[in-house]
């Protein structure tokens, strides 16, 4: 079915990833340094150093408390993300079982139980109002 030699368990197949990492980091660094060298550098006073907040003089810093909703979203995201990570190996192997067997049914049941725990967490968050944005 598949012509290619994909013996990719060896680390050599990850060498190109290292190459592109080097190139990307080099591109970013070169951009930052080149624009710093080529571009002008004019001295600025107090006003130039201020942050731009629609022309107002900035009041205080931006390091303030912010809405707790962002934390809630991050926490629920973690639940789902970990679930997804655990599901990938299953998703890649499950269709290779022959369909309709008892073995497949056991796999399906286990994964559905795992999904069900996440759905319970989701519904709990739903009822608690985590997903209300008004």
């Amino acid at each position: 079915m598949h012509p290619g030699p994909l013996a990719a368990s060896d680390l050599a197949s990850y060498l190109p990833v290292g190459l592109i990492l080097l190139m990307a980091v080099g591109f970013a660094a070169a951009n930052i340094f080149l624009s710093r060298i080529i571009g002008p550098s004019r001295p600025g006073g107090v006003v130039k150093g201020q942050t731009y907040e629609s022309g107002m003089n900035p009041v205080g810093t931006a390091r303030k408390r912010f809405n707790v909703r962002f934390y809630l979203i991050a926490m629920v995201f973690l639940v789902f993300d970990v679930e997804i990570v655990f599901l990938y190996p299953w998703a890649a192997t499950f269709p290779n079982l022959s369909p309709g067997t008892d073995e497949g049914l056991v796999w399906l049941g286990r994964i559905f139980f795992f999904l069900f725990t996440t759905v319970v967490a989701y519904l709990y968050g739903f009822r608690k109002g985590v997903f209300k944005f008004d």
Binding site: I32, S35, G39, P40, R42, G44, K48, G49, T51, T61
Partner: peptide, 12 residues
């Protein structure tokens, strides 16, 4: 873009 001033505000 290369010829623009790459400015860093003071409080960042």
């Amino acid at each position: 873009l290369f010829l623009k001033e790459d400015y860093t505000p003071t409080r960042v």
